[in-house]
């Protein structure tokens, strides 16, 4: 966690502790404690819970440890199918969303067409209204189009949730590619398509990857719309969570939560390494 303790400056110059700096330290300390309690706390509880047998009230640790709940999840066919469904929909959503949104992002970044700003802002529309309201009206439309309980229907819901990321972030990334670099490639003899493939796309890639990761996670975590459109024919991991929390002991939900978090954490780590280690961080001589 990148929490600055606020002290590097103070320690470098070795200033005496003034009331002001003490106050600042207390404030930072308080912030750290809050972060630990509210972010790490639940995660820690989740981790312990997944391996807990009986856990009675005043005890800080469970009374006994067990792998039984993992067995339940692994052996339960419905849960396995949910994992499969999630791993099917999330990559497909990213792919479809990329095919639809990346050309749009490039157009927003590079061409000035009438209504450009209007379209760019209106992409936020799906996020401006309460999600449930959108999904209810969407469901009405889907009934008419026979899209309820279909893969296509769920895909539409998932892609809708990713449009903003997949357009805005890559658009910013495309716009940040200096025109000079594209002109230099054209001057070297590259066709417009080749310029895009060899210069624009590689340079915008970190931004596109961020957008893809966020879209993947959005699709992976999408529950409300999937439940409304897909249940019971297509249960994904988040929608299965709902029934788990209601029907199973909390330990099973804990195990499932951890499983649900694995792809997200893995993706975050991979993206983190790629983005911070990539050329974006190197800083180049372009004005």
């Amino acid at each position: 966690m990148a929490i600055s303790t606020g002290s590097p400056i103070a320690s470098r110059t070795r200033r005496p502790l003034t009331p002001d700096s003490i106050f600042r330290r207390v404030l930072v300390g308080l912030f750290v404690v809050l972060m630990v309690v509210f972010i790490l706390g639940p995660l820690l509880w989740l981790g312990v819970r997944a391996f807990a047998g009986n856990w009675t009230y005043p005890n800080l640790l469970p009374d006994d440890w067990t792998l039984r709940w993992w067995q339940v999840v692994v052996n339960d066919g419905a849960l396995g199918i949910a994992v499969q469904n999630s791993l099917f929909f999330a990559p497909l959503t990213v792919l479809v969303s990329a095919i639809i949104c990346l050309p749009a992002a490039y157009a927003f970044a590079r061409f000035d067409f009438p209504g450009r700003r209007f379209f760019l802002i209106s992409l936020f529309a799906t996020n401006a209204f309460p999600k449930m309201g959108l999904f209810v009206t969407l469901a009405a439309l889907f009934y008419a189009l026979n899209l309820m309980n279909t893969i296509l229907g769920i895909l539409v819901v998932h892609v809708l949730g990713t449009v903003v990321f997949m357009t805005w972030i890559p658009a910013a990334a495309f716009a940040a590619v200096p025109r000079n670099l594209e002109e230099a490639a054209r001057d070297a003899g590259a066709s417009k398509l080749r310029v895009f493939a060899s210069v624009t796309l590689p340079m915008a890639l970190p931004g596109i990857i961020v957008a893809a990761v966020m879209s993947f996670l959005a699709s992976f975590d999408e529950a409300q719309g999937t439940y409304l459109v897909g249940a019971p024919a297509f249960m994904t991991m988040p929608t299965q969570m709902y029934s788990l929390v209601l029907n199973y002991p909390t330990q099973v939900a804990a195990v499932f939560s951890i499983l649900l978090a694995i792809p997200s954490v893995a993706l975050m780590l991979a993206a983190h390494k790629h983005i911070l280690g990539g050329q974006l961080a190197e800083g180049f001589q372009i004005k």
Binding site: P178, N180, L181, E183, A184, A185, R186, D187, A188, G189, A190, S191, S198, V199, P202, M203, Q279, E282, F284, Q285, I286, K287
Partner: peptide, 28 residues
């Protein structure tokens, strides 16, 4: 520009940051 027999050196050099020096020079 891609079909002209001229080559340009840009004010801010416009080197492609994701390619090595040799790749930059070899691209044309």
């Amino acid at each position: 520009a891609e079909n002209r027999p001229s080559a340009m050196v840009f004010q801010n050099y416009a080197l492609w940051p994701h390619m090595t020096v040799a790749k930059n020079v070899g691209f044309p």
